[in-house]
Write a protein that binds this DNA or RNA. Structure first.
Length: 113
DNA sequence: GTTATGACTATGG
DNA sequence: GCCATAGCCATAA
């Protein structure tokens, strides 16, 4: 096929970005949850892989809506992500406003898509 | 082919 | 709560 205006990312990368793009504003998902959805589709996938894809190709996607399993983020991204959470009114932990309140903001691509 | 690395997670002390 | 370890899988060298 001759797609002239389409950059072909690695297959799994395209799927990861597709899922991330579906996360609604004000909600978040986790690397593991996305990995589970990815594994359900392709038969392969891991949280580590999602992180790998995000670091490489996440620039054009709402990367701040993807957090760790405990609601925290990598140190380098924390400040930028918090700014977005302020815009989207994402629920944060009261005692620890550097961390997302997963009980309120979690979004599961498998069950709540 | 092997090894090292990474925006991860679960488990055990 | 924190730290160390094992499992995970694509990429780079």
């Amino acid at each position: 096929m001759t797609d002239t205006n389409t950059f072909e990312l690695p297959g799994h990368a395209q799927r990861v970005l597709d899922i991330v793009d579906q996360i609604p504003s004000g909600r978040v998902s986790t690397y593991g949850l996305i990995a589970e959805c990815l594994h359900a589709r392709t038969g392969s996938g891991s949280a580590r892989l999602v992180g790998q894809v995000m670091s490489r190709y996440g620039g054009a996607s709402p990367w701040w809506r993807v957090v760790r399993a405990d609601g925290t983020l990598p140190r380098q991204l924390r400040p930028d992500a918090l700014a977005h959470y302020d815009d989207e009114a994402t629920a944060l932990v009261w005692r620890n406003p550097t961390k997302v309140d997963l009980d309120r903001a979690i979004w599961d691509p498998l069950t709540d898509a």
